[in-house]
Computed example of a mutant assay.
Amino acid sequence: MRVAVCQLNARDDRKANLGAARRLLDRAAAAGADLAVLPEYVDYLGPASGLPAPEPVDGEFGAFFAAAARELRMWVLAGSFHEAGPDPAHTYNTSLVFDRDGRLAATYRKIHLYDVEIPGRVSYLESRGVAPGAETVVVDIEGVRLGLSICYDLRFPELYRRLAVDGDAQVLVVPAAFMLHTGRDHWEVLLRARAIENQCYVVAAGQIGDHDPGRTCFGRSMVIDPWGTVLAQAPDTVSIAVADLDLQRLRTIRTELPSLANRRL
């Protein structure tokens, strides 16, 4: 399987963001990707006052990426968007996966919400406007098991162990808008750890650069193999990175270092 991570700088213009995302998908398809992964909040990352109205899964956002998948004959993981939530005050942070025919194959709602409050320094409570999801999701992509997650989920290893063990995941995906000040120290370390401890490929697509209001994302989208080796990494600009996933190598690693089989807890 050939995968592409698409690195975007989404701002406060949804139409422009979707156009940029489509151009990256075009590049991924031209590179022969079977699956393209876009970042968290691919359609809008800006002031709350301009946030597009939340939509159902089959709304404008879903229709846009379903059409892209169908036209490009490629699997598309459409980052995430604000799905209409359980009440008027809360949305879900939701990833959608479309198959080559544009059919919706999986829906994942972000489980772990980024709530951080340090007096005098930072106050960011994602849960004020976003409701947590409750279900882990693994989707079969032409015989390859893909475990879904979003951004802050990355800090919770128990989620990925469940995807790998209970869901038989072989690939873990992480669409993200990882902050610069944490990303430069933690992003690659955490991604490689999730790959090594779960003996899975990790495919992580991040937002890059400045976003209003006063937010900077780290980027460095990458693909990592089950040994923890970085196979491909995007440069610090809007771009894609492409890598081939060798499922035989995954099976060999799991046979020669059977840590998943040897677990006791």
Rank of each mutant, 00 (worst) to 15 (best):
M1D: 01
R2H: 00
C6E: 00
L8W: 00
A10D: 04
D13E: 15
R14M: 13
K15H: 12
A16M: 09
N17I: 03
N17S: 11
N17K: 07
L18P: 03
A20W: 01
L25Q: 03
A29I: 07
A31E: 13
L38M: 11
P39T: 07
Y41K: 07
V42C: 11
G46I: 06
G46D: 02
A48I: 08
G50H: 08
L51V: 05
L51A: 07
L51Q: 08
P52S: 07
P52T: 03
P54H: 11
V57E: 12
D58L: 08
E60Q: 09
F61L: 05
G62W: 02
G62R: 01
E71G: 11
L72S: 09
L72W: 09
E83V: 06
P86C: 10
H90W: 08
H90G: 05
H90S: 06
Y92T: 03
Y92A: 03
T94S: 11
T94K: 03
F98Q: 01
F98E: 01
A106M: 07
L113Y: 11
Y114C: 12
I118H: 10
G120W: 13
L125D: 05
R128W: 10
T136D: 00
V138E: 01
D140F: 05
G143W: 10
L146K: 02
G147A: 00
L148K: 00
D153K: 04
P157D: 12
Y160M: 10
A164C: 08
V174D: 07
T182N: 15
V189F: 12
V189N: 11
E197Q: 10
Q199L: 05
Y201V: 03
V202M: 00
V202L: 01
A205T: 01
D210H: 10
G214P: 03
R215F: 14
R215E: 11
G219S: 11
V223T: 09
L231P: 04
A232K: 10
A232G: 10
T237L: 14
D246L: 10
Q248D: 14
T252D: 14
T255S: 11
S259I: 15
R263S: 09
R264Q: 14
R264P: 00
R264I: 13
